[in-house]
Design a binder for these strands. Structure first.
Lengths: 227, 227
DNA sequence: TCAAAAGTGTTTACAATACACCCATGA
DNA sequence: TCATGGGTGTATTGTAAACACTTTTGA
């Protein structure tokens, strides 16, 4: 029996890095978009786009590292975050062993515009991604499929909606992610059955059509599982 | 913008370890059981039970590390394995920063007896666990809830069944994990609708009751998602 | 012939789907 | 008054659940 945890591990002799990478999604122009930052790779002698992320600090929880890096690189704070998957292929980074814990983050559509939108930090349509750093394309693909499945059995879409939203706005979020149109009446029935949703007396007005009722997440902004 | 991956990371100056821990489940005596190994902790001056697992090697993929450690510590090979979650609280290990990537593994019921069953490696009923090392109780709890949910929408239970199995045997696997009894007729209808299952002409005989037809997973032993 | 598990269908309740028209507002 | 999206109900289909008896074998 080797490698029991009380022995000094064999990893002490070699360099190992752990990072977090965050797949930040929002909806813009009816498309699912991911936030990327442009970076110049000394190794590859070219610029490419990467997920926000960075190395963890010695005494920092993984999720705190994701939060900190995201805040520092993009100004984003107070965001929905869940752990996605850990990528650890030994050759995923050309210079050293870097294991990355990937997170999925969602930004409400009305906050997406607040993000620094510089030449180096930009929203990208997930269907038109540029060349990506390392295995970041694979990470985004997994995040996207996780999001698609969670639409079916959770209220996760509320994390992309404004604090007050119309049912049509919520439906547009679904349609953008699923890339298909949904029946309005069935969609409303389904969402109104969620216990965590409640209607307000306010309306979305001044729209040159009948004003729409605004809804909100009741109490907790937690993720709920349906049925 | 700090911590871009081309800079030397701040983690070079401190010790960081990455391990894998494997939650190995099987069914014995109609109960879900997890494989644990007993270890003596110098720090805590006592023995406790831990998941199989160990530190990763420099050029080893994470999953390979889980496979290797499991084979080395328990003799188990060729097992169903999926990544579960990464646990990285900075204080989860008293001596150093150890981030562990947890895996879920399933052993067919007819192979469970082949596992080394020494005083130091033993199957434990998940409902009667001893004191566990570090956060291993939390890891097992998460693995168990993952398994329960996957029963509902995948064919994962087949990974616990023998290569040839009767429908009653498969039902017993469900019942052991869910800790509730299921209707025989509804269960058979549901399972026979899976495309990956096929009946053979063989029977489970010599049982002092009517012989039961044997079924098998067709072609691939892959995990399938239902509907 | 008895005990023990295998095998088999139908009815009912519920959930998901398909589908079309009137309403309220700003321009 | 027109264009635009908001808001509403029912019929149908499909899926899940409840439920009991006959069959086959070894002892």
């Amino acid at each position: 029996m080797i490698n029991t945890l009380t022995q000094l591990p064999s990893s002490t002799a070699w360099l190992l890095h752990v990072s977090t990478d965050i797949v930040v999604f929002t909806i813009k122009q009816n498309h699912l978009q991911v936030l990327l930052r442009q970076r110049y790779s000394e190794t590859l002698k070219k610029s490419d786009w990467a997920l926000p992320g960075g190395y963890i600090r010695p005494t920092e929880p993984l999720e705190d590292s994701a939060v900190r890096t995201l805040a520092h690189q993009t100004g984003i704070g107070n965001v929905y975050l869940e752990q996605l998957y850990t990528f650890g292929r030994p050759d995923r980074h050309p210079k050293s062993r870097v294991i990355t814990v990937a997170y999925l983050a969602l930004i409400p559509v009305d906050h997406a515009a607040d993000i620094i939108d510089s030449p180096n930090i930009r929203w990208h349509d997930v269907s038109q991604l540029p060349d990506l750093y390392l295995d970041h394309a694979e990470i985004i693909k997994l995040a996207r499929s996780r999001l698609v499945s969670k639409l079916a059995y959770s209220t996760i879409a509320l994390q992309l909606a404004p604090a007050l939203f119309t049912l049509s706005e919520l439906q547009q979020i679904y349609e953008a992610i699923l890339e298909e149109s949904l029946d309005k009446r069935n969609f409303r029935k389904r969402v109104l059955a969620w216990e965590c949703i409640e209607s307000t007396k306010q309306q979305r007005a001044n729209r040159s059509h009948r004003p729409a009722r605004l809804y909100r997440c009741s109490k907790t902004n937690e993720l709920h599982y349906i049925k």
